Simulated scan of single mutants.
Amino acid sequence: MIGHSFMGAVHSQAWRTAPRVFDLPFDVDMTVVCGRDPKDVARAADRLGWGDWAADWREVIRRADVDVVDICTPGDSHADIAIAALAAGKHVLCEKPLANTVEEAERMAAAARVAGEAGVRSMVGFNNRRVPALAHAACLIAEGRIGEVRHVRAQYLQDWIVDPEFPLVWRLRKERAGSGALGDLGSHVIDLLQHLTGERLTGVSATQATFITERPLPTESSGLSAQAGDQRGQVTVDDATAFTGRLEGGALVVVEATRFATGRKNALRIEVNGSRGSVAFDFESMNELLLYDADDPETEAGFRRILVTEPGHPYLGAWWPPGHGLGYEHAFVHQVHDFLTAVAEDGSDPRPSFADGLQVQYVMRAVERSAADSSRWTSIG
């Protein structure tokens, strides 16, 4: 695993847990974790359960005892690490968004195609696909339970940078993160709405805002717990992004991604309206799915709550008795299960593939171009 901060800790827990919950096709040996600072990564290896540590990702990729490389670094290093790992014959799991630019993502997808011909697999980590309630929603939509999709509205709302004195961490710098709320949060809902509906976005009209343009530089940690110093620097990413769009089938899409929704900590919400019904999900009630069936008699019409904890629901046959809900980290455990299962099948790349990640990158580029051009309607190549 390359990187050991927030995402590294979550992925580590997933690698530790998945073999204890699921009957995986491989034994999992958490061989080595990599970070830039030797002292920090040595502590992380001990804390997170890794057998060894390294301070150079190139050293990790050269190791004969490494079969999988899990990339949990900021987006500016995804392309170099992933392409080198694939060329070395390592299967790759890479955090979202796939890269910081379309050009980097195109190189990664091309490398994945070449590696795939030799049986080397790759996947991008849009973990919300693996939330059981959302996986169940995808099944219902695919089965035609809500009919023809007509509307999708999706929000991802956080508030962790509302304070103007919160320091200028890497997620607020375009050269490290690629974009702000758009890439951090918007990429999740773009992937999710296309996954749920089975349709791609064809065009967008977007707007973006940066509410606080200058922040104190961090003095210690570069993570969410960073300390602010006396010097200040420029915020070079969006604080919030909103756009309307169209799906291939003509459905209207409305998306909002912001880190300035005061009071909202991690509110990922999505609703899909169809000709025969609707489904709605809110991450703050992540074990629940709301379903409206337009075929119900009017005297019984209304959204009904499905508690997604039954053994017949996606992933849940391996977990607890009905009614015992799962949490944020479990989607990453499911991600490990799906990734290794796909690698074992040796037929095609697991989904979402690098090609899927590239398509999300095309959408994000169209959003940025539209926002920079007075919200002009922008087609997605």
Rank of each mutant, 00 (worst) to 15 (best):
F26R: 02
Q155S: 15
T31E: 10
G249S: 07
L93R: 03
N100Y: 03
W50G: 00
T73M: 02
C94G: 02
Q227V: 15
A261F: 02
P19A: 04
A55T: 14
C139D: 14
L268Y: 01
V363P: 02
G186W: 05
G249K: 06
V367A: 03
A109P: 02
R58V: 07
A14D: 00
V363A: 07
A118L: 13
V333M: 06
G203Y: 08
Q359D: 15
A209D: 12
G49M: 04
E165N: 15
H324V: 14
H330V: 14
V308N: 00
R129P: 07
A257K: 03
A301K: 13
A251S: 04
A88C: 06
R376C: 11
A181Q: 09
A342I: 13
V131Q: 03
V279Y: 01
R259T: 14
D191Y: 06
R63P: 04
A177N: 11
A181L: 12
A261Q: 01
A54H: 04
V92G: 02
R62P: 09
E103M: 07
R63D: 10
R173S: 13
V235Y: 02
S353T: 08
P350H: 04
G125R: 07
A177C: 13
L193V: 10
R200Q: 12
G263L: 02
V60T: 10
R200V: 09
F6D: 12
V92F: 03
S285W: 08
R150V: 14
T73F: 01
A318H: 00
G51E: 10
Q13K: 10
Q231E: 15
